[in-house]
Design a protein around this nucleic acid. Structure first.
Lengths: 206, 206
DNA sequence: GTCTATAGTTAGATAGAC
DNA sequence: GTCTATCTAACTATAGAC
């Protein structure tokens, strides 16, 4: 890893814990193991470090979200069929995978925390955070459930409602168990109950 | 309003927008209309201002949460009967009232934002925020729905699941529409759909 | 690309006049 | 209880040696 990448890395960790203003250039340099003045050979300002993190993570998150969890490709019809073939246990496993990815993936977890604490302060991260965690998720799931309803996998209710019922407990649990990795089992138990209920209500049995 | 109260007031506004480290003592003093040094006649440090806000808001929030929205008294049996008599429109109105209170009440809205952006940095506000917005809400609703199930108002499923299904969309929408008061109608529309669905699924019709 | 040295600014906080 | 003046420390950032 280059020094530049190391700086990004340590800055992300510190920003996600103490926030932008709570982290000094010296803190970052210390974490990297260089003097604060040396840092300016790689970046022109502290703000630039932050902005580059936002850009980098924006692309990374977009890519990860696509690979992970939801669309294997961007074809909703095949995705719907694929998920439709899942048993209840398969659906539980899938939701756990998505939840734990957002909760524990080192990049995603730090980025989410940084975004949460800097969203009112830094315009760029507000947009990215809201797009990824509050808009795209619902948008994608709505389209997916729409297709699954068309394929008679789920009962015919407003797909947006399905998306909300599926995703909002995940979002809530992410916020709730953010700082308590030791309570992961409890989080998963609650998640399983919600997804189980979702399956019970909306899944059309063969 | 005394100067001391004014300081608390302006500090809360600034902390909720720019965070603790993003707000200087001078910023607060300017907002109040005094010199920064004068501020130390009322508080011994910047941290003390923050801590007093947390304590004050903790009590205020606790009281408001009780008055508002949910329990008219702490008797779940009567509360359950009361809410059981609500029509669908009554339930929608109630959920809207709770949502808009958390979203727009000047104290609650600022406190929630401050809590969100300082939760990883200040231990005291982490506890208060999680207790009020992530634990108590679910805990209270679980007890309430438990009682409503016993009274055959709702179908007999795990009351905790009901509480999550009722509350997590509200929580999600609070996060989503925090900074966009102009999109309030859109938020309410989505909330109504979720609560309507909740009513449709779980309410036992006479 | 790292270091030392330092400029220039702002931060939180105190002393003492009124 | 507000002000001016001031202290000390920390901050972002730059200059220049190696």
């Amino acid at each position: 890893m280059t020094t530049k990448e190391l700086i990004i890395e340590e800055a992300l960790t510190l920003f996600s814990q103490k926030g932008y203003h709570g982290t000094s250039v010296k803190d970052i340099a210390n974490a990297v193991g260089i003097k604060d003045s040396s840092l300016y050979k790689h970046f022109s300002s502290k703000q630039e470090i932050f902005d580059i993190i936002v850009c980098t993570m924006e692309n990374k998150m977009e890519k990860m979200s696509l690979e992970m969890g939801l669309p294997p490709d961007n074809n909703f019809t095949s995705a719907a069929s694929y998920y439709g073939s899942l048993t209840k246990e398969g659906l539980l496993a899938l939701s756990r995978q998505v939840f734990l990815f957002y909760l524990k993936d080192p990049f995603v977890a730090r980025f989410r925390k940084m975004a949460i604490i800097e969203q009112y302060n830094q315009e760029n991260i507000y947009r990215v955070y809201h797009r990824i965690f509050l808009e795209s998720s619902i948008f994608y799931l709505t389209a997916l459930f729409q297709e699954m309803i068309a394929q008679h996998i789920f009962v015919a209710v407003d797909a947006c409602i399905l998306a909300m019922n599926f995703y909002t407990p995940i979002f809530f649990l992410l916020c709730k168990y953010d700082q308590t990795p030791d309570l992961e089992a409890q989080a998963i138990e609650c998640l399983d109950k919600q997804i189980g209920e979702f399956y019970r209500i909306y899944r059309i049995c063969e």
